[in-house]
């Protein structure tokens, strides 16, 4: 059940058709939102033409630009395989991971826009200040809270109990959900979907005893009640987490005071 929901059909790999295996490189245009705080007053768009295999990822094309055309292009990336959560960006107007977005899944004939995620302070090119995001994450106490002595063996749990929060364990803290949320855009005070998802992961864990405290935190003015169920977060999540559903489950737990 930890598998990630993917929109793309399982066509790649051994069973792929001839068309999908066509690795003829094509020239694509990446229209990147650039910003250098030392020289620019405002961000601006810059076009880069780069040769790419349609089955390559946007991240590969960006690394190619950085290596061959403009070394000053700044973006975060670490594992480059969709698990570290570093390279969330707004590609063609949607928050995605650059390392999980294939060129062929976008309109290759038109320029592909790449910009920083919204709602967090822009520092340079595609790098934003993640501190407010991480602070909201810390505020929900994303660690196991228990009382009494440590048990001498593992803390066991039934598969049913585990299933309750399975979906929210998948979060990689890439901020794609929080920075797609219009409520978060407005003043950045809202906890945001990612923090609520990570609170959900512990609130509904039968081994944890801090649910009451976490619910109290999310009951505050900037907590779950600011959610407008626009589903932007669910749509943006590169891990396929049903974010809005998790937020609704926290709301229900608050109303009925029962986890």
């Amino acid at each position: 059940m930890t598998a990630v929901v993917e929109e793309t059909a399982p066509g790649t790999g051994h069973g792929s058709t001839a068309a999908e295996r066509d690795h003829t490189p094509i020239v694509i245009t990446l229209r990147i939102r650039r910003f250098n705080p030392e020289t620019d007053a405002e961000p601006y768009w810059q076009d880069f033409k780069v040769e790419a295999d349609p089955t390559e990822r946007i991240l590969t094309a960006m690394m190619k630009i950085k290596a061959e055309q403009d070394g000053s292009l700044t973006f975060r990336r670490s594992c480059a395989h969709g698990i570290c959560g570093s390279d969330a960006m707004r590609i063609n107007g949607r928050n995605r991971l650059a390392c999980k977005t294939l060129v062929k899944d976008l309109d290759m004939a038109k320029p592909i826009t790449v910009e920083a995620i919204k709602g967090l302070k822009l520092e340079k090119d595609l790098v934003v200040d993640m501190d407010p995001f991480m602070q909201a994450y810390k505020d929900v106490m994303p660690f196991l809270i228990t009382s009494g002595n440590e048990p001498t063996r593992e803390r066991l749990q039934s598969p049913e109990d585990r299933e309750r929060f399975d979906d929210t364990t998948k979060c990689i803290l890439c901020a794609a959900c929080t920075t797609s949320c219009p409520v978060f855009w407005s003043d950045g005070q809202y906890f945001g979907p990612a923090a609520i998802v990570n609170a959900h992961r512990f609130i509904f864990d039968s081994r944890d005893e801090g649910a009451e405290e976490r619910l109290e935190i999310l009951n505050e003015k900037e907590g779950v009640w600011r959610c407008r169920t626009t589903f932007n977060c669910t749509e943006a999540c590169p891990r396929g987490i049903e974010v809005t559903k998790a937020i609704q489950e926290v709301k229900r737990a608050l109303i009925f005071r029962r986890v």
Binding site: D139, I145, T146, E213, E220, K221
Partner: peptide, 15 residues
């Protein structure tokens, strides 16, 4: 079950 977090302070938005 209350644990004080070591370094980080809660954001001042308590109601």
């Amino acid at each position: 079950p209350s644990i004080e977090s070591p370094r980080s302070k809660r954001s001042p938005r308590s109601t």
